[in-house]
Computed example of a mutant assay.
Amino acid sequence: MIELAPWAWALLAFAAFNAGISKTAIPGGATVSVVILASVLPARTSTAAMLLLFIVGDVFALIAYRRHAHWPTLLRLAPAVMAGFLLGFAFLALGDDSVVRRTIGVILLVMIGITLWRRRRSRHSEGAIAAASYGTLAGFTTMVANAGGPVMSMYFIATRTPVQVFLGTSAWFFATVNLVKVPFLAGIGLVTPVVLWMDLLLAPLVVIGALLGMRLAKRMPQRLFERIVVVLTIAGALYLLI
């Protein structure tokens, strides 16, 4: 097991708890957990550890919202997401990491601005156009920087998706994407016994956070939900720019 100070374990515990809440109540909040793990653990270790904790949260998100998913939306997004995956892989092979992260941050901020502008003018995003643009960017950012969450949040806000459908469709989307990532991380040796033991200790906090998130989501008004998502998405974009 990695030797960590008590304060570091406290941060990891909070990150795990926050990951659970984010999966079942506040999409976009997971960025906070990603930042914490990356600051406490070695970068490569944090990537694998965070992914496995997210998968624990995905299980509870599916339990809570699996029936609320809008399957036509997922099918409409799939081709664009796959294209984004391929673009992200090519960009990773050719681009510098810091340039990649900052590029994603800028794109996210521009997309947030466009989304909010369209909402203020009471304009709905076109179905095919929105799916192509947001889907491609989601696939791209997920592959490059594990930052697909903020993009998908903006897509659901742009299309005025109700809270329960938002959470249900997100649950299936990220459960699928995260499972696809596991073999790739395992193949390059990132899913180690150390990571598994650490996540085993932290997983109960993800469960507690997820259960609390289920209760919060049922009582959260649509407008408040959207404002929280926008704020956290902006915070995630700014983090990528730093």
Rank of each mutant, 00 (worst) to 15 (best):
H124L: 15
L212Y: 03
F184H: 07
L116C: 13
W172E: 01
L12Q: 02
Y155H: 12
G148R: 00
Q164L: 07
V34C: 00
F91G: 00
I208M: 06
L224N: 10
T73D: 14
V177C: 06
F225I: 05
G149V: 12
S33W: 06
V59T: 10
V81W: 08
T136K: 03
L62V: 11
A16M: 09
A43T: 11
L109V: 14
T159V: 12
V182C: 05
M1H: 14
A78G: 11
A64K: 13
G168V: 05
F166M: 04
V151L: 04
I55Y: 06
S125N: 13
M198A: 09
G148E: 03
Y65I: 01
F17W: 13
R123G: 14
V194M: 12
R123P: 08
L240S: 01
M214D: 10
P72Y: 05
G209A: 01
A5Y: 12
H70D: 14
G127T: 15
I188R: 12
V81T: 08
P42K: 05
T24N: 09
I228A: 15
A15V: 03
A203H: 04
S125V: 12
A5F: 10
M152L: 14
H68E: 15
N18F: 10
F85A: 00
R123Q: 15
G189R: 12
G236H: 07
A48L: 07
R121M: 12
T24R: 03
A38W: 08
I36H: 08
L200I: 09
L241P: 00
